[in-house]
């Protein structure tokens, strides 16, 4: 049997992007590989901008070699390619030297994310592309997708640190369908745990010694969904971040924290995200949540925001209000 190529391996493994949108990695690679262009790009997203998320930190600390190996495989696979590691300032300080050493002669450059443009939006894939091109880090209109026309209008593969780490495992046929779970907040046993990806959230919390919980936020400290203990019998679909909350949690303070983070972290380019979040934060400040206004704001944020950040910004508020505040 001839050796299986990496794209079939990726597809077979079922691995999905680990940055949050859970797009099948094999398909993404395939479209960039198939795209006809004399120049292509690979971007490793190491911005990890969600609050209380530190799994990429952990991976860069312990497995940087495998991440670079994943990039090497990607560059070779898509062809005519050059790579970038787009990294936040803090991680660059910690791991920049190490990464440079590991890169050796590979055509990979490191670009430090300019957090002035919004700490959160700089992690959105089209904003990364704009930023590397030297422009303001703001989301781009899709289509065209980055896989067709990305960095400098060339087909571009954007993968998260964790995805690239697992690529190296998949390539060596030792991938065990695991992922990194980041457990934080009021958890007794905080940390990053590499566990099977099909474990239910309840099992993950139990096995890591973090059960019982009052409620959790799953999928990131800014746009993750609030979930009650009874809802945790399913695996994590998107970002594997679990923030644990106890009974003493003040829901208004929590919402204020999200609103402040999102308002500071967004790009302010479109009305629903910019103004919707502002009106939401005003209501939270006054502790006066009017249902009709909330429904309206959630609708336009979800339906009419320019980019995924705006479209997802209602998730934590909506779920907290309906499940915890009631």
């Amino acid at each position: 049997m001839p050796p299986q190529d990496i794209i079939s391996k990726l597809k077979e493994s079922g691995i999905k992007g680990r940055s949050g949108s859970a797009f099948p990695t094999g398909l993404k690679w395939e479209s960039v590989k198939k795209a006809k262009s004399s120049k292509k790009y690979l971007i490793c997203n190491a911005t990890e901008g969600e609050p209380e998320l530190f799994k990429d930190d952990y991976i860069l600390k312990n497995h940087a070699k495998e991440v670079i190996e994943g990039m090497r495989i990607a560059l070779k696979t898509i062809g005519n390619a050059e790579g970038y590691i787009y990294i936040n300032k803090e991680y660059f300080k910690k791991y920049g030297t190490k990464l440079k050493k590991l890169i050796k002669k590979l055509p990979i450059s490191i670009v430090i994310a300019n957090e002035e443009y919004g700490k959160y939006i700089i992690g959105e894939e089209t904003s990364i592309i704009e930023a590397i091109e030297g422009k303001r880090a703001e989301p781009r209109q899709k289509p065209p997708l980055p896989t067709e026309k990305g960095l400098f209008n060339c087909p571009t593969l954007v993968n998260n640190v964790e995805t690239l780490y697992y690529v190296s495992q998949i390539n060596e046929n030792r991938y065990q369908n695991k992922r990194f779970f980041c457990i934080s907040g009021k958890a007794r046993n905080k940390g990053v745990f590499e566990l099977p990806e099909n474990w239910t959230i309840r099992k993950v919390l139990k096995e890591t010694g973090n059960w019982p919980v009052s409620f959790v936020q799953v999928g990131g400290g800014a746009e993750g969904e609030i979930m009650l203990p009874k809802e945790l019998d399913r695996p994590i679909r998107y970002m594997a971040s679990i923030i644990v909350f106890d009974k003493k949690t003040n829901p208004y303070l929590l919402m204020k924290k999200w609103a402040d983070f999102l308002m500071k972290g967004n790009c302010d380019k479109c009305v629903p995200c910019r103004e919707g979040l502002y009106r939401l934060s005003e209501m939270i400040k006054k502790k006066k949540l009017e249902k009709e206004v909330l429904d309206d704001l959630f609708l336009i944020m979800e339906e009419t925001s320019f980019c995924p950040l705006g479209r997802g910004a209602s998730i934590p508020f909506k779920s907290l209000i309906s499940k915890v505040l009631k």
Binding site: V271, P272, E275, G276, R279, D296, L297, L299, I300, E303, T304
Partner: peptide, 10 residues
Amino acid sequence: RARKINLELI
């Protein structure tokens, strides 16, 4: 509906 809400916000 969405257009009206965005208009109000503008």
